[in-house]
Structures are given as C-alpha cells and as structure tokens.
Design a protein around this nucleic acid. Sequence first.
DNA 1: CTGAAAGCGCTTACAG
DNA 2: CTGAAAGCGCTTACAG
Lengths: 337, 337
Amino acid sequence: MNLKDIAKLAGVSSVTVSNVINGNHNKVSKETIDKVNKIIKEHNYVPNATARSLASKKSRIIGVVLPYVGMDEDFSRSPYYTRILALLENYIRQQGYYMMIRCTGGCGEVIPLFNTWNVDGMIILGADKREVKEIIGSIRVPVVFIDTYAESKIANIGIDDYKGGYLAARYLLSKGHKHIGYAGPGIDSPGVIGNRIKGINDALAEKDLHLDKDLIFEAPTNYEDGIELGKKIAFASKKITAVVSMSDVLAFGIMEGLHLSGLVVPDDISVIGFDGLPECRYTTPHLTSVSQNLSRKALLAGEYLFKMIKDKKKIAVNEIVDVEISEGESVRTIRPN
Amino acid sequence: MNLKDIAKLAGVSSVTVSNVINGNHNKVSKETIDKVNKIIKEHNYVPNATARSLASKKSRIIGVVLPYVGMDEDFSRSPYYTRILALLENYIRQQGYYMMIRCTGGCGEVIPLFNTWNVDGMIILGADKREVKEIIGSIRVPVVFIDTYAESKIANIGIDDYKGGYLAARYLLSKGHKHIGYAGPGIDSPGVIGNRIKGINDALAEKDLHLDKDLIFEAPTNYEDGIELGKKIAFASKKITAVVSMSDVLAFGIMEGLHLSGLVVPDDISVIGFDGLPECRYTTPHLTSVSQNLSRKALLAGEYLFKMIKDKKKIAVNEIVDVEISEGESVRTIRPN
DNA sequence: CTGAAAGCGCTTACAG
DNA sequence: CTGAAAGCGCTTACAG
C-alpha cells in the first residue's frame, strides 16, 4: 500500500492524498478529506517515513547523544543520564517525533551518524568544551546541549554548579562541620566540577576555612570507585567529619566503603551527594544531596529544541536551572563543644 | 554532497560509488575502490540513510519497545528496563545498527510507527499474551520478545520464573522461615507472576506449608507502592517473618515502609527481592535477591534478532535464562527453638 | 480546490 | 569490472 494506491482507490491524485495526510486542509475540500481518510483507515495505510524524509528533507527524528566511558560500558551505569533520557523520550514522543539514541566517546563520530539520518534536531549530554566547536561547525540542525560549558554561542541547559558547591559546603558548615572533604573527578577539571569547587571554596572561605589538600579524594563518579574512596576516607586524617561527593552514585559507593571499614554514616562521618536522584531514598541513612530538577532540565531542552525547529532559527541561550539541598539523614549535626 | 557529486569527482558512475560504499568489492577494481574512497574521505561524504533505506528497503534501524504505565510515566521508573535498554543499545551499536526507542502502553500503536520507518527488526519488552498475536500478525520484520509468555510461535528470551519463585521460597525455608509473605502484582496474573507463584507454592508444599491468604500483599512493583506495602506488612499478622517481593524496586520500598514503621530488616522481618539489580547494594542491609542475568538476556535477544535479519527467516524459540540467589543481608536465619 | 511533472539520493537488476 | 535506466514512495513548486 502506498500513496498511489490510496489515490487510485479514492479517485484522486497522489498530491491530494499527500495534502490530506499532511494536514494541508486549506488545499483540499472537506469531502475529499473525508473520503481519503476513510480509505486510509480502511487499509491501515501508513506513509513511508523514509520516502517522506527523502522528499521533504525532514525526518521527525531527534538524535540524542549520551556520553560513555568505554566500548563495554553502557549508560545504565549512570542513573542520572538514564533519568534524563527517559524524560526526553517522553517529551519527544509527545511531540510526535522519533528518538534515536547513541552512546559515544567522542561526539565527533556522532555527526556523520546523525547527518546521515537527516535528524531534525539533536540533544547532546555532557559534551565538553573542545567537542562543542567541532559539533556546531559541522551540523546544520538545531542542537541543545545539556551540562556543557562553552564560549561558543550555543543553546545549553545547565544547573547552577557554583551554587550547588556553595550550598553543599554551607549546609555542612551550618551543621558544625569544619573539616570537609571532597570526592569526585580531578578538582582542576574545568566546567561543571570547576564551578562546584569554586562554590565550595567560597563557602569555606567565608568561615576562614579552605579545602585541605589531604581531604581531596579524586575518582571517577561511579559506585565501584566510590567504595574504594570510602575505604580511603575511612583511613584518612582523623579530623575529617564530612565529605561532599560530586554525584549520588559515587556517594552511595563511599557510604558502602565507609561501612565496610566499620564507620557509621552519619555518626562517624557525614556524606552529601549531588544530583538528588530518587535512589537517594534507597540508602540507609537516606542520602542528603544537592538536588537538581531533572524534569525541568529535560523540559527546557525539549522546549528550546522544538522552538528552534519550528522557528527555523538557532537560539543562543544558557539556561541555568536552580539547585537546592534535599535533606536525607546522611549528615549529622556537630555540637560545638 | 551526494553520490553523483562523488561519482563526478572520481570520474566514475554513481553505481560504482554505490558499490564501493556497500563493500561490493568483487564488482569494482582495487584502484577504483581506492580512488573513490579517497574522494569520499576528502569531502567527508556520508550517504543519505533515508535514500538508502527507500531504495533498498532496509533501514539498519532496530525498534525497541518499552512498556509504560501512563502518559506521564517514563521508563526510568524501572531500573530493570533501563538496564536492558542500555545493554541493547550497546549490542545494536556494535552491530552498526541504529536504535529507535519508544515507550508505549499498547504495542498495537507501535506497529504503524515502526512499519513507517521500515525498521529491520524489533525488540519488545514485557508484552503480554494478547498483544503478541496482534503484533506478529501485522509485522513482517523479525521480532524478539523479552519476558513474554505466549502460545504463538515467537522468539522469546525469558527467565526461569518458576525456578525463581521456587528458589526464593526454598532459600527462606532453609533459613528457618515458615510464615512467608508475597508482595507483588495480583497473584492470579498469568505468565511471569503466575509461574513465580507456582514456584513459591511448590517449595512451600514440600514443607507442608502454603501461601497464607493473609500474607499476600498486592501492589504494582514500584518504590512508592512498596513503601505503603511495607507499612501494611508491618501491621499485618505477627507471625510473618519474611516476604518475597516480585521486584527489587518494590523491595526497596517495602524495606523503607518497614523502617518507617519502626521495624528492622532483617531482625524483625526478612525481605528477598527479584532481579538482582546493582541497586541491591545501595541499601542497608544489602538486598538479597533472585538474580537474573540481564547481560545474557540482552545478548541473546540481540543474537537471535540479528540471526533472523541475516538469514532472512524467522526463528521460533523460547530461551530461558537461569536465575540464582544473590545473597545480601536482608534475610536472617531463624534458629529453631 | 486539484493534478502533472520533476526531484529527493540512493540501489537494483540488467546489459555490456 | 563498469554504467545507463528504472524505480523506491513520497513532497514541492507550479499551472490551471
């Protein structure tokens, strides 16, 4: 069954059928519309999307790019990406578009991939500054980045990482903690981490404190590395009373590592995470975390993308979604003695 | 840049370029191949996938269908689906195919969707018996189901649900539990749940026990409902000492509900989950669970699908992946007094 | 409001 | 080994 068949059955031309399907109702009479629709329904006809895409140069496909670590990795390692992905799927589906997803180490390799499919737009998660130029230079469709810091004119949806770091440290300080540790990627990483570190430092500085070099624990933000980090922290300087972790998943690992080392959270040491995932409630004690509004991030990403697609012009914008402390029970109050 | 441009630059016909791109090396001389490839590389040419798909009637797209609950739901609610999805993405990507995903309430609505894109194959998660007929009746490409019970001749990858139920109950019995509860979807659901229930009952029967009606707690398998269920269980018959939950996420909720009610797991009550997700290690105590090998399920699904695609014929098969108890600390040993 | 013609960028037989 | 021709199933101006 194709357009021509339907046209023949309806006694009209393919053009007319095409106009009916595409809702160009100003070009077709009411009766013709009804007649054609009836035949379409009777025969369960669905237009061929590849032919449509080829002819119209639109695909209704949105390409979504997720970062991955190695060939054997999969994105489920990161509940954060998973959640965003699910939210985007929902949004894209409700727009009547299709979602094509791809994990990749370098966004460069993804460009030919999506060019090949004439995607109407792309959403790229966690790209770094260097990749951005390569991407926007060679892609003509609208792109929205999530969590990317770049000088270039791009549409980006991020969070207030500085404030996140600041709030985490302030929260711990307000609970009487003075010797605060850091756990996460190398503290000299630019962008996301750099800004959080700055926030932490500024909060500490207000109390004439600073991040002690001995209390900086660097590791990738996943569960397994978290366990190792937890063990290290357990045997580190005795004065440490709290740790700021750069992700919830890392924090889960840290809590486990501390537990395995015989320490109790929060009695012996407090932990605060970052992201505020639903999984924070799976742990005992529940993880206190700097919570970001993922629904809002996904919503904004979708809205900007479709606005660009509909208006056919790019938007340069940097939307910063607010963060807040979501309290669990993993931070204890130290009484000033 | 299109085929024709490349052909012109290389001084050959489009057919020849096409043959080079598609690796029909027996049809082109070595020198021509090199010449054409050089030009392709120089100009960063990528073939237009929609045109290819239209002409060849192959798309290299695999459609993946996930079940969802309501319009506002997203699949991240279920770490189980998320994990499978991530594993499938990895497999599909490594085959050089594209993955298009879709959440849906009824698989019926997904048929026109994927027909429209000429997908080369589909993987459908958690379809129920009634949907199967509708799907296989109206789709011509290879389909692999995951976790589906059906009489029809289909390719399905499942787990040994009966054994899972049996092992869970046996495990609890071996620890001295006699009053065992059930938590999960309605126990008269056919398929997955029905078989697990049967396994539980058979294990209990071996000890002249049975599932007590008072100890059956029905709810959808998600965290929030789990909390409510945990509270109910806490105030249920005093004799209950252990609960078998039909999913890990539900079990997490139950543990939380019990905790909120002042009960301690496993001291006051033991809990065993189902799935064996990595998240089992996030809880304190770690959740003991009937663990299924998700990597293997995804691998088998991928292998069967691509075998069907390559051999161009359907396979009827029901692969049952083994399950085993993955021990955490959420089940206590009751001393016979 | 309706349709004939051209074209989107490929691949598929087929002929040489 | 190479290429001319036809066709995949649509949409896009354009003419009426």
